[in-house]
Design a protein around this nucleic acid. Sequence first.
DNA 1: TCCAAACCCTTGGATGTCCTAGTATATTGC
DNA 2: GCAATATACTAGGACATCCAAGGGTTTGGA
Lengths: 168, 168
Amino acid sequence: MGAPLPRDPIADAQRNWERHGWADVAAPMAAITALMRTQQILLARIETALKPFGLTFARYELLALLSFARSGALPMNKASALLQVHPTSVTNAVDRLQGAGLVLRSPHPTDGRTTLIELTSEGRTLAKRATAVLNSEVFGRSGFEGQDVDQLIRILGNFRRNAGDFSG
Amino acid sequence: MGAPLPRDPIADAQRNWERHGWADVAAPMAAITALMRTQQILLARIETALKPFGLTFARYELLALLSFARSGALPMNKASALLQVHPTSVTNAVDRLQGAGLVLRSPHPTDGRTTLIELTSEGRTLAKRATAVLNSEVFGRSGFEGQDVDQLIRILGNFRRNAGDFSG
DNA sequence: TCCAAACCCTTGGATGTCCTAGTATATTGC
DNA sequence: GCAATATACTAGGACATCCAAGGGTTTGGA
């Protein structure tokens, strides 16, 4: 977006919070704001890596999820639950993936309400190639140190459990 | 979106990565995926808290930024740089805030290219009230433990510096 | 001086997310 | 068995983000 700022704007915000008498919540405010910004940076990296494949992160996630399902197929509602996004977002992603020939919709054998998303062979191939690039260009160069990765997994895992994402 | 899942889908993904021979990047993948999901949860909480004020997080951030500027005014490009979002996103936010009477555009006194965003008194009042609610309902109940907040600030701060957000 | 390059903001288009509402199919209870 | 309730997916709309392109303003070098 531009050259680096001379100072960390989030640290400045934290100081502003403290100066205004909100010292008790200044640190969580800073942590949450930093998390939002970090997500933005990482998402941009991921989208850049996926662009050559004509994929976005949302579509890639669905493709990857399907590729790990033994049968290569999942009901839409199951995909929505596992990806933890709104059902309409899955509909949107499937529309586009289907248009690109990477997945197809098929009726559920026993439940007429349910639609199965099936990976095509093109979809499976593309998922594999995209994963290789993501692994090498994004996850392999995350910029997080080894111990920090473990800390993040622990802290964010606790948070997500408390937020009701999973009960395990 | 629904009931908690019986198992953590991100931990499952991490196991899938390891099982497919990508053990070297499985942990960063899990950390990054968890970060994306956490951002989603936090954003939803923030948007819920701001809804009664007719604000979104993007608009709130701009309002808050202005309220900390001594003069209560900032050039659009400065706001874009400090919030670290694309200039068009600022245009969009200003359009809506202006429509709500919370800010107004005024010409820069010496540079004809630049537009200043000015907080109105309604804007200043609303920013104050919205901040109070965010502090008590979101930041004050973040769900992160004290030490973890410090860890997050440190880890994400290092990441953002390495990513070129700031040089400090 | 003067014109090209740099900078600032806005418009238009593509994507993704969510919410609300509507249609179709299953399940449950009387 | 049939009506009421629950579940699954989709259509339409509101927002936010980014990119590409365009028009106006400044700056700086020839």
